[in-house]
Amino acid sequence: MSVLIVIPARYASTRYPAKPLALLTGASGTARSLIERSWRAACEVQGVDKVVVATDDDRIKDAAEAFGAEVVMTSVDCANGTERCAEAHAVLGGGYDIVVNLQGDAPLTPHWFVESLVQGLQGDPNAGIATPVLRCDGAALNGLLADRKAGRVGGTTAVFAADHAAMYFSKEVVPFTSKTYEDTDATPVFHHVGVYAYRPDALAAYPSWKVGPLEQLEGLEQLRFMENSHKVLCVEVEAKGRQFWELNNPEDVPKIEAMMAEMGLA
């Protein structure tokens, strides 16, 4: 099956303007932009036919082309990364069996997360979209809870059924647990990893659907599939010793840089 990875990137982020061009310094002391690090992560994924950056901003286009990425220009009217991926796939002429949305704020995404995601979607013909979930250890859960206590959105959590069909995604920490966890404890909370794999027909239909109340309240694009009765498959992935965090707020920069230093990522 042919696989396209699209990295949607926009300049005018509400929470963090110019976020794709924010610099992250790795263990070697080299500073690279967030969009470059996300592109490098995408290029490590096996079994992919093409990787492109999709943007509506010339500043991101110029920066991406400077480090060697292929860029697809998309409309300023795209409401989220899924809509931008749908447009990018159409601009490229379509024809891919699976389109992966590797959001441009997740430079620590290990290649096996995406490989497992594609395999999961290939194995479930009833799912039009799949997304990875990672069981939180105590340290990750405590980080999510600390962000919420401080009024920040530090990540998204997911709950799913026995067949791994998503039941809900939230920027709150769900399910509720009153237990105190040590850093290395396994918890009942799953961190939603901001990557998606779509079948082309589900992706093409997405922009035509109205934004539902849950998507509007949570600001989570994947809820539009669920509000239109489309199965979202949650694929559980393993960290294998790698730390994972998304860059949602300026305060996340030193956190991610510390993780990169600890893992020896240049």
Rank of each mutant, 00 (worst) to 15 (best):
G143C: 05
V159D: 08
Q119A: 14
F169I: 10
V159K: 05
S178G: 15
L121N: 06
K171Q: 15
A165T: 11
E115I: 08
G123A: 15
L144I: 10
D124T: 10
Y196S: 12
R152K: 06
L117I: 03
Y168N: 12
M167L: 15
G154D: 06
A146L: 13
D124F: 03
V133P: 03
K179G: 10
Q119C: 13
A158I: 06
E227L: 03
T156K: 10
G128K: 02
T187W: 01
V211W: 02
N126V: 14
R135A: 03
G120P: 07
D201E: 15
T157P: 04
G219Q: 11
D163E: 10
N126Y: 14
V159I: 10
Y181H: 02
K179Y: 13
A140W: 00
V174R: 10
R148E: 02
Y196G: 08
A197E: 00
G123N: 15
G138C: 05
L117M: 08
A204K: 10
G212V: 11
T177V: 13
L121G: 06
D124Q: 03
A186Q: 01
C136Y: 04
S170N: 08
A186E: 00
P213S: 14
D124A: 12
G219I: 09
L203D: 13
L214P: 08
T187L: 01
W209P: 14
D183V: 04
A146D: 14
Y206I: 06
S178P: 13
A130K: 12
G194P: 11
S208Y: 09
A202E: 03
M226V: 07
T177A: 13
L134A: 01
N142D: 09
G123R: 15
A140E: 03
A197R: 02
E172D: 15
A127W: 02
T131V: 05
V189Y: 05
